[in-house]
Amino acid sequence: MNSRTIQILQSRDTLMQSIRAFFHFEGFIEVETPIRMKTPCMELHIDAEPSGDRWLRTSPELYHKKLLAQGAQKIFEIGKCFRQRERGDRHHPEYTMLEWYRAGGDYRDMLKDVKSIVGRVSSPGVSKDWKIFTIAEIYERFAGWNPVETFDADRFDFDMVEKIEPNLPKDAPVILMDYPAECCALARLKPDNQKVAERWELYLGGIEIANAYSELTDPVEQRVRFEKWGEQRRAFGKTVYPVDEEFIQCLETMPPSGGCALGIDRLLMALNGIETLDDILPFRD
């Protein structure tokens, strides 16, 4: 094993210890939830890997919300997640996700958490001056249109990859927030502006690291979204997953909460100034 591999393994170990220390200090409990799921979370562009009569989790989100509904207050999990056909410099079909939730919190609380985590784990040289842009602002600046006013899914994704991400500052942590309602995923809409979803994404060194929401807790709205994505998946010729009825039901008692998912492998890349996951993972697909 070469010294670089050892150095990366050590860096990962230090990162894991710092993250766990942060959450325990904050009074979170570490949980473990099933990796094989009866039905994965339905999202338009995320495909689950089948595993016998189950699917491998694409995220622990649904189980964590079930725990919140049962009274858990502050929980986190670090574990493997799986996504079909995702392979590139910044994608690997099997990867390590950190997921955490705060009952009673919202996406602003998650932002405070992620600032503390990044502050703890990054070298003293990393800028403390976080740059925060709304999606409307950043698209106006680099792509010349406002997707919150008039949404175009295709144009939104292409411009994100070709015009927004390459132009984001790389010398400081960047937050993109307040996504168009059409990109809400499992986030709630702003109470005073239904065109905007309470969601942010963190970029470090131009790499997308984490995604957070003020979680949607309305079972009726959640069912409408699942059904819409199901229809869209059918139209794309993708597998349509059955709706997790237990999950829909748990939203009746789940408190308003903030949640965040963070890619550990990508964070490790960003912290070590590495360009590809291939240089981070000791074993690759």
């Binding site: 590139g88 994608h91 990109c183 994404e201």
Partner: peptide, 14 residues
């Protein structure tokens, strides 16, 4: 060749 997939968005091959 680069595989991209902006958060929650579709896969884009640059």
């Amino acid at each position: 060749f680069q595989f991209s997939k902006p958060g929650k968005g579709q896969a884009i091959y640059r």
